[in-house]
Design a protein around this nucleic acid. Structure first.
Lengths: 205, 205
DNA sequence: GGGTCGCCGTACCGTACGTTACGGTTCGGC
DNA sequence: GCCGAACCGTAACGTACGGTACGGCGACCC
């Protein structure tokens, strides 16, 4: 992946975010490259989309969680960061645009953009969060049987209706940085109320 | 909306659920009608899609909640039914297909399918659930300040990652009727843990 | 300075699909 | 039995777009 190729993929992202129709002509014009080059580098339109999705995924992937000795404050801090980061990602125009094409593609089943997005989004964050949850359980801070189920609950508390509303074009939902931090803190508080070891476990699955 | 027109829209739903490309030719063939009739009845392709979305919405709309004197058991029962019904809807092949076209459409901004789906999905269920929550607060069963926020939490606890995974084509998620009932019960239990008046309120927003 | 390579711009091709037009058929009203 | 309306099936048109071909041009090598 040369820098020039990255510029081309950024042009694709630009067009997607704008909501313009993503034709090969439009990409070539925006990226100031020839269509021949596009086909040489990416094969066909599907390959271009796949490369774009992976290109963006490679940028979003944050540092992995480092196993550590946890106390309640550190755990809360980590959870809030996870939630805030996730909310920031799913409310970004880029993520919305990419999820839209991936969802449309998953319907026609031509490429496998949906699987790529899932792998780098929902599943990646799950794999990054579960070690934290398990360390917290080890440290006696959380109670749960199944880390996957606990994660899914946290995912629901953090995301709520945000992603589907944004994907469907709801314009009444405008998450500022402050909103995101407040919502992330609230989700974390609720998660502690459900899974915190200092309280009665809510028959957590 | 004649019954014949309903048959045509059912043909559209069939094609969408199959994942076939939704061309006017395919619709005409599947519905055994002429393209001329399609254009006469629905104007253009967008009109056909709009009519299809509204046609399905008119079928999904369930009975409204009837205000009643609530006790804990009745409240739990109602909440579980709401959650189970919502999970059944969003995991149905029809809903997935319609949400896909609506989301794709919301990206290009041609029609306003996204708004229609939101209005008949997420927002409709919110308006139906909030009176129940408020009655429960009135009856001293729940504690919260903002019914909208409480609803959004319930929405997150019930839906979690289900909708986005299905929209993105995740095939590892297969919700049986039993799964749905179990998840609905669990979400309701968690919601009570967060907002039930018999416990300390979790600083609920 | 000539040859080669990689790329840009553009013209071009084939096809898919939205849309329109039209001949043929059924059916209710008189 | 005849008329008109509604509708079916299909052919035809125009366009948009994915994909290909080709001429030109700067860069680099020898």
């Amino acid at each position: 992946m040369t820098t020039r190729q990255g510029e081309v993929l950024d042009a694709v992202l630009d067009l997607l975010v704008e909501g313009s129709a993503l034709t090969m002509n439009a990409v070539a014009r925006r990226a100031s490259c020839s269509k021949e080059t596009l086909y040489k580098w990416f094969g066909d339109r599907d390959g271009l989309l796949r490369a774009t999705v992976q290109w963006q995924a490679s940028r979003v992937r944050a540092g992995n969680y480092e196993r550590q000795k946890l106390d309640t404050a550190a755990l809360r801090e980590s959870l809030e960061q996870f939630a805030a980061n996730w909310l920031a990602v799913i409310s970004s125009r880029t993520s919305i645009a990419l999820n839209r094409v991936a969802i449309a593609d998953a319907g026609s089943g031509k490429s496998n953009l949906g699987a790529i997005v899932l792998e780098n989004g929902r599943f990646a964050i799950g794999e990054r969060l579960k070690p934290l949850l398990e360390d917290a359980r080890e440290a006696g801070l959380l109670r749960f049987n199944d880390a996957e189920e606990a994660f899914r609950t946290f995912f629901g508390l953090a995301g709520r209706d945000v992603q589907i509303r944004l994907l469907l074009g709801d314009t009444t939902l405008n998450l500022s940085k402050q909103d995101i931090e407040r919502d992330a803190a609230e989700a974390t508080r609720q998660f502690f109320a459900l899974y915190g070891a200092s309280q009665l476990p809510a028959e957590a699955g």
